[in-house]
Design a protein around this nucleic acid. Structure first.
Lengths: 332, 332
DNA sequence: ATGAAAGCGCTAACAT
DNA sequence: ATGTTAGCGCTTTCAT
């Protein structure tokens, strides 16, 4: 199927391709009569601008590559939505790539996006976090922005929520409402977010005059199963567990499942709080008190930052730290 | 930032661009020594094939345009995942476009994807369902596949679940387990899926010797609020409501909320069943008995069908109807 | 106000 | 086995 080109229009009207190009791009120096004739012919012939040719010529695709570990995982759809909305508003499209958290896959997808000549890259919850990884990205000479997860080398553009502050506000709330011994089921993460949440936990406890106790801080996988297993184990010891703060909602889901299964009541016997506010959190059997990350907003800001970077490659790296929000529900 | 081109490699090695092209595309008729030299130079210079140039030349972008109403809505992330996985496996990338269910937006995004010269289009839960819409798509001469929602003119490629069969298996189950008067909170949808579910409901009731009663069949919006409001109203009449079958999980969420709020027990007082099996369904306060659509699979099949169509534009339109599955949980 | 020429990076077709 | 030519559809530059 052969599509109409500018040349076709030019022939139809009896002008040069250049004139057609000017008209179709709203450039000056075309007589009003000619302009109208070109416009009419374009419509009549069903002209669809070939953005591939344009991309080739202009050396820009108006496309952003999005690298994400698992686009279907609760937390990400909103982020992606924010990204897509904001990108479109600014005339960019999104090329979507899942990596399933696999480093090698991520490397390949980045390569692919590079070959497709995207104008920039958003790395959402990327595994490309080592100093070498960031170095590699920089060497590519393509604008990129990290989102959600911060790389070790923080001298890059990134958008994230304030993990310290989020953990801190949750501990403040828990202590204020009566908890003093707060178990922390944190994730062990390659990134710094687990660490920052831990810091927020620790410092805020100390602020309230509660000594930090390494014994009640665990590091688990970022899975429901892990939360479930660790809660089962802890509770089976018959320990006095009053409050569990989970590093993420996914862990909390498992934890609550274990608690209810063992016949305890939430929040009467045990209070459970966590971090992220995935879509599920509000619908759970016992709705979850959690720190809400501004997911959609993170997406929007990532795009805005990336576009800034595209327009001005020399600028100093910039970080945008969005404030999370405390969402109190029934689990506490 | 100027990237390495084939011409750069050609100069470096001292051969023609054509030879470089042959090597880099694994074409025959190149001596092994030359081949190796080219390969080495490509690596040394960090050559990244320019897929834009390639697309222009070959008239194919190896990109699929995905039109979807709301990529963040519960049901779709899995579908998208299936699409992305399968596309990548076959060397295609996905250009993601949300329409928010807005017809005009959809029209514009289709236009955009056309301009970006995608090789094909997947319309997931599209609003482009009228005969004219399909006609328009056909006139474009681009391969396209409908997913989830079927257009009025069914002589196109599409992938969907068997709505009749899904509703039927649910009614079978409900009747078998003691329900005879089954309220149906169906959606009123522009598409045919609500109609097919209604048919499955009706025919299966009749099969069991239960007369179809128009009085207990409602048409609601596809929202939690709508389910909530209608359930409240129905229950406040003090009617004898034993079982409610909802046309989709979203409605069921609202219905269950209303029921619990009014002090009834699920399933002891009222049984609730529905359709779709969105991710939430299993985590709800009372986990939901529902008809599980094979979401990921729908995504995969859409891509496979589209690729077939791309390779063979003349083929007869083909429809793939996937069987849903009955998922029994606590709400019944 | 209009147009001719050149070239973006690549490959199909056709030499040598 | 290797190279030359031409052109995909567009825009920048430089005439006219």
């Amino acid at each position: 199927m052969k599509l109409t080109t500018m040349s076709d229009i030019a022939k139809e009207v009896g002008v040069s391709v250049m004139t057609v190009s000017k008209v179709l791009n709203n450039k000056p120096n075309v007589g009003p009569v000619t302009r109208q004739k070109v416009l009419d012919a374009a419509k009549k012939l069903g002209y669809k601008p070939n953005m591939i040719a344009k991309s080739m010529r202009l050396n820009q695709t108006k496309t952003i590559g999005l690298i994400i570990s698992d686009s279907s995982f609760s937390f990400f759809p909103s982020v992606i939505k924010g990204i897509e909305d904001c990108a479109m508003r600014n005339g960019y499209s999104i090329l979507l790539c899942n990596t399933n958290g696999d480093y090698q896959a991520e490397k390949e997808k980045i390569e692919l996006l590079l070959n497709k000549r995207v104008d920039g890259l958003i790395l959402a919850a990327s595994t490309f976090v080592s100093v070498e990884d960031t170095e590699y990205l920089k060497s590519l000479g393509i604008p990129f922005v990290y989102a959600i997860r911060i790389p070790v080398d923080e001298s890059v553009d990134y958008v994230a929520n304030d993990n310290y502050s989020g953990a801190s506000m949750m501990i403040d709330y828990l202590v204020r409402t009566g908890s003093r011994k707060i178990y922390f089921f944190n994730m062990h993460s390659a990134s710094t977010s687990a660490l920052k949440r831990l810091n927020g936990y620790r410092k805020t406890l100390e602020k309230h005059g509660i000594a930090y106790d390494d014994e009640i801080v665990y590091k688990l996988d970022h899975t429901i199963e892990s939360g479930y297993a660790h809660a089962k184990k802890l509770l089976s010891y018959g320990k006095d567990v009053q409050t569990i703060f989970c590093g993420c909602d996914v862990i909390a889901i498992g934890v609550m499942e274990a608690i209810l299964e063992m016949g305890f009541k939430i929040p009467d016997d045990i209070r459970v709080a966590s971090y992220d506010d995935i879509e599920l959190a509000q619908y759970l059997q016992v709705s979850l008190t959690t720190v809400s990350q501004p997911k959609y907003e993170i997406g929007v800001k990532s795009v805005e930052l990336l576009i800034e970077r595209i327009h001005n490659p020399q600028k100093e790296p910039q970080s945008i730290i969005l404030e999370p929000e405390l969402t109190i529900r029934k689990s506490t």
